[in-house]
Design a protein around this nucleic acid. Structure first.
Lengths: 172, 172
DNA sequence: CACGAATTGATATGTTATAACATTGCTCAT
DNA sequence: ATGAGCAATGTTATAACATATCAATTCGTG
């Protein structure tokens, strides 16, 4: 449970990153993952996944809804929530509890709780998946006799870019 | 930031625990803490704190509201939310993001993010405050150049009691 | 093609949280 | 004492997030 796989996370802010590329990769992985397990990545589900990925920050369900409504009439909240449930169930997106928002999973296919660094200035969220954190939590929990099912880890703070911006403002 | 102070957490489930006593202690600490920093622990705020502590599991704002309404007429949501904001601001309660609920802080006065073990069967939440977890998160974050402000850590699973109950059911 | 199951549409409603402004009541300088 | 200033609370309305329910449609399969 709560298996971390990478120690060095490919954090969003480390380098300029090709948004289109990362999004297309995610979509391709989703398609192949669904094909393998016989799940139906229908048009709506696929579109919701695209919208979530293109936002590249956690999006609220009603933000997604607005985007869909601009494309086709008559989309209602249940449509979005059902698509999100599907995507959550297949590990293609994560829910950010502290924001009531959703974000694409950067490592679908591997079973893992999400670990997120969320910038409270620019709103971007980087998915971390660090074994040390998972192990620390698993360790403490089992010392208390607690059996872990899922760990929600959401760290709020300042991303590197926004720290710089802050400094500039302070110096001005 | 996110300083853990104890390594061995006094987890709720370790022993039978005197509910009245723990609640009275919490209230006494709150009173003295507010006196020291000049904050006004008014009747409403105090009552909300009592209700939250007596629940001894995370309570939703509207659950608290119902309790208050049974005692005095005309209490509305803002009343509860304002009291909760005050209590959150002074570190007397924590918000559980994954439940949209509130729980008394077992260690007010020390600055700390909350770490919670939440049983998905009985609903109780035990506050942990483990340095190892805090350090792991601080470490990973700073490796990514991220400056931590607040860490939300909410672990869902089975408490010792409910693991036993499950086993009994399975054997029956 | 017809069947059953999964998906989506449509409407209504439940749940959580805050905005906005009026009122009360306390403190403190005069 | 007294009233200006401010913090707290009351009151109403509404925003934001989420789900229940049932009808209609679509899709894969025999």
């Amino acid at each position: 449970m709560v298996r971390g796989r990478r120690d060095a996370a490919p954090v969003l802010w480390h380098r300029k990153h090709d948004h289109r590329r990362c999004f297309e990769d995610a979509l391709a992985r989703a398609v192949s993952l669904c094909r393998r397990c016989g799940a139906r990545l229908t048009a709506i589900r696929r579109r919701v996944l695209e919208v979530v990925w293109q936002g590249h920050r956690p999006l609220g369900a009603y933000e997604i809804l607005e985007t869909l409504r601009a494309e086709r009439a008559g989309v209602a909240p249940p449509t979005v929530y059902r698509a999100l449930d599907f995507l959550l169930g297949h590990g293609l997106v994560h829910r950010i509890e502290s924001l009531n928002a959703f974000v694409g999973c950067s490592d679908p296919g591997s079973s893992h709780g999400g670990q997120f660094l969320i910038c409270r200035t620019c709103g971007t969220a980087a998915e971390l998946n660090d074994r040390r954190i998972a192990l620390a939590i698993e360790g403490c929990s089992s010392e208390s006799g607690f059996h872990v099912h899922h760990a929600t880890i959401e760290v709020s703070g300042l991303c590197p870019n926004c720290q710089q911006s802050d400094a500039k403002v302070a110096n001005a």
